[in-house]
Design a protein around this nucleic acid. Structure first.
Lengths: 138, 138
DNA sequence: TTCACTGCAAAACGTTTGCAAACAG
DNA sequence: CTGTTTGCAAACGTTTTGCAGTGAA
């Protein structure tokens, strides 16, 4: 079945319309979207896109370094178009995920490596607390 | 169906044989076990224990502060009987998860809170790299 | 009797995979 | 052709839930 025209064939190994739509969905989302949210957004632009393609595209984009995958707890993965190293803060009340950057991470990595005896590659730092909005709402 | 004797009835709100078996499984595991591994270990001691009970018990023990749940990436949750605040290191080669403790976390929390404008509650820090064994195996 | 806890089975959730169809090169 | 990508649907692993049965209080 199938084959109405939009689907199928692709250029060799690069930015297909689907991948572009997925990338745009990540870039244009203010928050850090989940695969599901990306799917919905991409579908508005490319109604025939499938869930599997969203996942394939995210995998491709992540490996290509255009997008970064973030995890916290057992919740669904979220995606971030800011690919440089940075830190996260999660709100315990509304669940918002914010980016920030700590200047002292190089020393931090060295200290952590010394203590753990691991050969360091990267460090993940997440602050858990109340976001500014939730602090205000009481 | 059922009711062969081991299952069922329980004291009001506390350490049942099942919960004790689950707690022991976490404490006696050298590594940080997954729910599945805990299930297998607990079953050796209490053959009739079910998966659901392991999850219920882990939830109870976590809320009671006897056990701590740790996540990394999209892998299954792992459990840790060391409940004091501490940091983790994950090996990119063999997947081993090690504990360590960074002395400078209070300053770190303050710096992160200042940068993110969140009201801090806790901080999660994970070093990603090569564990000592995998460094040796080259 | 009441109520928390157990065991089972099925459901739910996010994610991955197998496969046929559809192209680009 | 060959090789890659898509869409669909079904499978997967982890975790949660509904429900009946059980026993301590």
């Amino acid at each position: 079945m199938a084959g109405r025209g939009d689907q199928g064939g692709a250029p060799r190994g690069a930015l297909t319309p689907q991948r572009r739509a997925v990338l745009r969905a990540v870039e244009e989302s203010a928050e850090h979207p989940t695969a599901n949210e990306i799917f919905e957004a991409a579908r508005r632009e490319l109604p025939s896109i499938s869930f599997a393609t969203v996942y394939n595209s995210l995998k491709y984009l992540t490996e290509a370094g255009l997008v970064r995958e973030i995890h916290f707890g057992k919740a669904a993965s979220r995606y971030d178009s800011e690919t440089a190293r940075h830190d996260h803060a999660v709100c315990t009340r509304c669940g918002k995920l914010a980016d920030f950057d700590l200047a002292e991470t190089p020393q931090l990595i060295r200290a952590a490596a010394r203590r753990s005896r691991f050969k360091p590659e990267s460090i993940h730092l997440t602050l858990v607390g109340l976001c500014p909005d939730c602090q205000a709402d009481g």
